[in-house]
Write a protein that binds this DNA or RNA. Structure first.
Length: 428
RNA sequence: GUGGGUGUAGCUCAGUUGGCUAGAGCACUAGAUUGUGGUUCUAGGGGUCGCGGGUUCAAGCCCCGUCACUCACCCCA
């Protein structure tokens, strides 16, 4: 029986690996230039760690197993709990603020669909120990900085920003009971994904009084902070949240990325742990799920047994991003990049040993060099050089045995020059 | 967990109303080409038509089941 790959996993053939590395290398590069340092953790942890904040239901969506000592473990479905654990363990010695990033490989036992697989990579950046929304602005800037670096522009992607604090304040202001908040969040999060009529029906199920419902509907149709201010009246909590958002947008303006950003009250984010500013970045075609999402989670470290220290961060998976970059044709020049610098061809099979020596010398000098194992006609070898996208070809022939000269052929222009081998190596 | 779609070569697919030894393009290997590449030409390898059953003289095609993949829902850390 032929063994096939597991559902929701990917094989990375060299051309796929080139794309994956293009993304991962850029993630790292952009993280570093934004002042983040890299960390990583184990790929499996105690199952209990993931159940701690999310409950048992999440357990069915992760790959869990028992080790030989009877410990219940799980392959990491996210890295934030690991981050919280690591930070808590050394909280007294780590200088704050912390700006950490990671590119973990994650697994979730969900049904795969477009833009969602069971195994994927996710870029995470987090800033720990900064209350001010300047940290949120930095997280957003770093995300946008990366997207711009791939070649995407403000006509391709949009950052939709809102605030959990704001929604909570407004709902309370309208008189929605605290116990209902979570359910209402769930419905609000759907708003931009479903027809208005369906949305109103769903809202009816979680808010029974019509008066409150009308207010919520009105709130959801707000599309600017100014409009919101009138609407919120003199409610103190709401005003605080609005001021914070205004401050955030000022920072984003200083950073020069306002054209990417928009206030969007329908951004709520799925699960419970967000406490303040939240955002998601979307491809403007609106056909795909979010490219990335993040926000403030000020209680997480405390939830994991540490002190109450504020934190904000973002996660960006490689699946949706890969689809966007593919659609926009932004995986450019990947094969050329991987091409070798020198291909050493030999005109006579007896000269293969000389070619081997030359290749070894080039490689020791730090150059990408290769040659043919089976030799054959010069034409064949040059063909192989083309296949390997060699920049130049070195031809070892009669001139070498007679005068110690090499022919250096530029594979792009076809021009070639003859040069003494010693001279060639002294130039490297 | 629920519903839709699709399974023919490594990839993209054709295959008539059920009818001879199942095809094409791309890719791969070799040759034309033992001192000059990408082009071109020629040849070759590669398929239990997802799997199992049924109908039929005859099934890639029709029927039933099953598995896989995929898309959407649920969920989305």
């Amino acid at each position: 029986m032929e063994i096939q790959s597991v559902k929701g996993t990917r094989d990375f053939y060299p051309e796929d690996m080139a794309k994956r590395n293009f993304i991962a290398d850029l993630w790292k590069q952009v993280s570093l230039r934004n002042g983040f340092v890299e960390y990583d953790g184990p790929i499996f942890e105690y199952l209990a760690m993931y159940q701690l904040k999310s409950g048992d239901e999440i357990a069915s969506q992760l790959f869990a197993f028992e080790d030989r000592g009877g410990r219940m473990l799980a392959i990491r479905p996210e890295i934030t709990p690991t981050l919280a654990r690591m930070v808590n363990q050394r909280i007294n010695t780590l200088p704050r603020p912390l700006k950490w990033f990671s590119v973990p490989r994650l697994c979730r036992a969900e049904r795969p669909q477009k833009g969602r697989l069971r195994e994927f990579f996710q870029w995470n950046i987090d800033i720990i120990g900064v209350d001010d929304c300047l940290a949120d602005a930095e997280v957003i800037f770093c995300s946008v900085d990366f997207l711009m670096q791939t070649g995407l522009t403000s006509s391709d992607v949009i950052v939709r920003i809102s605030s959990r604090k704001l929604i909570a304040a407004m709902l309370e202001y309208f008189g929605v009971e605290k116990e209902q908040l979570e359910k209402v969040y769930g419905v609000l999060d759907k708003k931009s994904k479903i027809p208005q009529e369906t949305f109103e029906k769903m809202l009816e199920e979680v808010i029974t009084e019509q008066a409150k419902r009308r207010k919520v509907l009105e709130l959801m149709s707000v599309n600017s902070l100014e409009q919101l201010e009138d609407f919120a009246g003199s409610d103190k909590n709401a005003k605080e949240a609005i001021d914070e958002l205004k401050k955030l947008f000022e920072y984003l303006n200083l950073m020069g990325i306002t054209e990417f950003c928009r206030f969007d009250i329908s951004i709520v984010r799925g699960l419970a742990y967000y406490t303040g500013i939240v955002f998601e970045i979307y491809d403007k075609s609106e056909q795909l799920r979010a490219i990335c999402g993040g926000g403030r989670y000020d209680n997480l470290l405390a939830d994991f047994g540490g002190p109450k220290i504020s934190a904000t961060g973002m996660g960006m998976g490689d699946c949706v991003l890969g689809i966007v970059l593919e659609e926009k044709g932004l995986f450019k020049n990947l094969s050329q990049k991987s091409g070798i610098e020198y291909f050493v061809a030999f005109a006579d099979d007896a000269l293969q040993n000389e070619a081997i020596k030359l290749v070894a010398r080039l490689r020791r000098a730090g150059l990408k060099a290769d040659f043919s194992y089976k030799g054959g006609s010069l034409g064949k070898q040059l063909k192989q050089a083309s296949m390997q996208s060699a920049g130049r070809c070195i031809i070892v022939g009669q001139e070498f045995t007679q005068k110690g000269e090499l022919i250096i052929k530029d594979m792009k222009t076809g021009n070639q020059e003859t040069i003494a081998a010693n001279e060639f190596f002294s130039r490297l």
